[in-house]
Computed example of a mutant assay.
Amino acid sequence: MADTALLDVDGTLVDTNYQHSVAWFRAFRRFGLTLPVWRIHRAIGMGGDQLVPAVAGQEFEAEHGDDARSAWTEEFDPLLPEVQPFDGARDLLAELGRRGWTVVLASSGQQQHVEAFLDKLDARELCAAWTSSADAEATKPAPDLFQVALQRVSGRAGVVLGDSTWDVEAAAKAGMAGVAVRTGGYSTDELAGAGASGVHDSLRELLEHLDDTPFASPS
């Protein structure tokens, strides 16, 4: 009986995935590690606690993990002015609310970045709550953040919107339906293969076909 719309933010509502990739590339370079940007991009959607060992290995995580995450913040912050919402992002939030959904932004980003994106979206009044990486011990693809986001509004069940395989996998682990948009750079086959019940090229396209998705109306 789904009543809560849980929306990822980075790469889903705001166009950040390539800025994230570049910031991580520069952060790793501080420690003498040069990784192909495409390989970093393939891990975007994970939280930093998951991404560092996934792309740099457990030994690097043990030696430099926390410092690398701090370096990433220093590299990403100057890129914030470049970040823009995707077309249709605010319209989608408003439409979900109009249909009776409780809208929660289920982000694994840092609190200050989530706040900045809320301002860019002009969406504070459209959302019942939002999360950040501080709200769960393990970030995506672990299900913790979606579970915390649902509990925050005392929801019965949730439907997730994300842009990465990690979002879809986390939704499945949380027992929630997952819908995906390709704005994060993942293919239709990858997203569907991870378990997405539907894949759309853009938020605007999703809006146009909302009646054919699990977001049609709360159960």
Rank of each mutant, 00 (worst) to 15 (best):
D135Y: 02
R29P: 00
M176E: 09
T213S: 09
G198M: 05
Q58Y: 01
G109L: 00
I40L: 15
D212S: 11
V159T: 08
G178P: 04
L96S: 07
D119E: 14
A23M: 10
D212Y: 06
D144Q: 03
D66E: 12
T183R: 09
V148W: 05
P36S: 13
G100N: 05
V181N: 07
L35E: 09
E169C: 06
G109H: 01
D135W: 06
L210G: 04
Q147E: 15
T188C: 01
Q151M: 05
R156F: 04
A216N: 07
S217Q: 10
D10L: 06
P143C: 12
R42F: 06
F215D: 02
Q147F: 01
R182M: 12
Q147R: 15
D212H: 05
E137G: 11
M176G: 04
E208M: 13
R156W: 01
R204L: 13
E169H: 13
E169V: 10
R124D: 10
G97I: 06
E75Q: 13
L118G: 06
Q111C: 04
V103M: 11
F31H: 10
T4L: 09
D144K: 14
D67N: 01
A172Y: 04
F76N: 00
G195L: 03
R156K: 14
S132A: 11
F28R: 01
F60K: 00
A142Q: 09
G48N: 09
L6G: 12
L105R: 08
G184V: 05
A196W: 02
Q50D: 01
F25M: 12
W24M: 01
F117R: 09
